[in-house]
């Protein structure tokens, strides 16, 4: 039996404080992944008044099992790296709001961040580091049945589908990894891929061959997810013949990539065709005083070490901006 211990210690020396509505912060950082936390440490060490508003602490790193390419660690669990990042950030007296999404950013000389619960905080500059979320299929049934058979995290939820029939949407690395995790315990796994081939790495495709409970539907797309309390079926369409059929499944794992969390800055800063925030090499966006870092930006290669580096850069650019203003 495995034990994935990552708890280093219960931190009793945290100095983070609740966000203050009456204060004008030098910089407010939106997001809680490696980009945001690195930016926070840089801002605090520079001595500027910083606030940190996020939905969760950890971001995608908290959902990752093992990481082998963050320098300094040959291997580290995602949750363990998050603890290290968060511990380092919380040793400072930073303003912190956790749990509520930023829904609106108001630009101006003084900027305002509006949260989903109505809270508003003011700042001279803003760093956007809201990262990515799983891309949705946008088909009927998906939202209603999320958490009731529609799932995005195969390592988490695979055990709940033991002996059941499931579908996996997406033939990339994440999709095929999910399919393999599921094939170990599910009765049957159907992979649905819109392209005419799987795009996952060869090692993964080879690993699929050892399972005889896996089926791959190429050139198929999902039209609808059906169910009431839980998922019962998925309707797929053959993109060549146009024919539709219903797959009898109790679960559907969606692994069709990620999309940037930029809803709150539409119309405020320039976005590219993928919806990512366009930044220059010093993390400046099209709006003066608004900076962005990490997966939410147009910077290529979505990696922890890159997000962290970009976060540092955005912080230094913001500090520079505050000084000059």
């Amino acid at each position: 039996m495995e034990f994935n211990l990552s708890l280093s210690a219960v931190a009793t020396d945290h100095r983070a404080v609740p966000m203050d509505k009456n204060k004008v912060y030098d910089v407010i950082i939106a997001g809680g992944g490696p980009a945001a936390m690195t930016a926070a440490v840089y801002c605090m060490r520079k001595g500027v008044a910083a606030g940190f508003v996020t939905v969760d602490i950890g971001g995608q790193v908290g959902e990752t099992s093992g990481i082998e390419n963050y320098l300094g660690f040959n291997y580290i669990e995602g949750s363990q790296l998050v603890e290290k990042f968060a511990g380092q950030m919380k040793q400072f007296e930073i303003g912190l709001s956790e749990g509520y999404a930023v829904t609106e950013i108001k630009d101006g000389r003084e900027k305002e961040v509006v949260l989903e619960n109505g809270d508003r905080y003011r700042a001279k500059s803003i760093i956007l580091a809201t990262g990515n979320r799983w891309r949705k299929l946008n088909v009927p049934g998906e939202t209603e049945l999320t958490g009731r058979g529609v799932a995005y995290c195969a390592i988490c939820d695979a055990p709940l589908f033991a002996g059941k029939k499931v579908a996996v949407v997406g033939g990339g690395n994440t999709g095929i990894e999910s399919a393999i995790d599921l094939a170990k315990i599910a009765e049957k796994v159907t992979v649905i891929q819109i392209l005419d081939r799987l795009t996952a790495d060869k090692v993964l495709i080879d690993a699929m061959q050892q399972f005889n409970n896996m089926e791959v539907l190429l050139l198929h797309e999902v039209k609808e997810i059906q169910g009431d309390k839980t998922v019962h079926a998925v309707v797929v369409k053959d993109t060549v013949s146009g024919g539709e059929k219903s797959l009898d499944v109790q679960g559907i794992f969606i692994s069709i990539g990620l999309m940037p969390n930029t809803d709150m800055v539409k119309g405020v800063v320039e976005l590219n065709g993928f919806g990512e925030i366009v930044v220059d090499c010093s993390c400046k966006t099209s709006a003066p005083g608004i900076f962005a870092a990490g997966d939410v930006t147009s910077v290529p290669y979505k990696q922890i070490i890159i997000a962290a580096g970009e976060g540092a850069k955005a912080a230094l650019s913001a500090c520079d901006y505050i000084l000059k203003e």
């Binding site: 994935n4 219960v10 009793t12 609740p18």
Partner: peptide, 28 residues
């Protein structure tokens, strides 16, 4: 159920907290 796998972390955490070692919660 047995708190193995990742759940060992919540198990150790509550043992530490129950023993008196805990992060202060904000007043509100």
């Amino acid at each position: 159920g047995l708190p193995g796998g990742y759940e060992i972390n919540s198990f150790i955490r509550i043992i530490l907290e129950m023993s008196g070692l805990k992060e202060q919660l904000p007043d509100d």
